[in-house]
């Protein structure tokens, strides 16, 4: 085995161990967002798709690399956006976003009005 492969293997094994360590501490509540978040990270294959596109010198390679770029870009962008949408919903009732005291007061009033009118 040459030096490049050995160092690549070292990195691979250590990254697996880091993955186990980081993931095993996540509470069940966040498993779905986590799966989705991990799902977006393997969109890193986009980098690989870009490199094969750079050296694609025949029509077959060009088609293959184009499809690979489309797939990977969909994985990356869609993955991060849908994860963000999920996580956006994990919030306490009164801290939906970092708001100033005034804004929070207005929001509370607005919520009260809406609730009141619904009940009326």
């Amino acid at each position: 085995m040459d030096e490049t492969l050995l160092s690549a293997l070292t990195v691979f094994v250590l990254a697996i161990l880091v993955g186990f360590e980081v993931i095993s501490k996540v509470p069940a509540t966040l498993h779905t967002p986590l799966m989705s978040g991990a799902n977006s990270i393997h969109g890193i294959v986009l980098v690989g798709a870009m490199f094969i596109a750079a050296v694609a010198d025949d029509p077959l390679s060009q088609v293959l690399s184009f499809v690979a770029v489309v797939f990977a870009a969909m994985n990356v962008v869609g993955g991060y956006v849908v994860t963000d949408r999920m996580l956006q919903m994990f919030r306490r009732r009164d801290t939906a976003r970092p708001a100033t005291a005034t804004e929070r007061g207005t929001a509370a009033t607005a919520a009260g009005t809406t609730a009141g009118s619904t009940r009326a």
Binding site: A15, I16, G19, A38, N39, H42, I44
Partner: peptide
Amino acid sequence: LIIAGALVGAA
């Protein structure tokens, strides 16, 4: 690619 892939594989 190796690092991110291995992370997700473990996750």
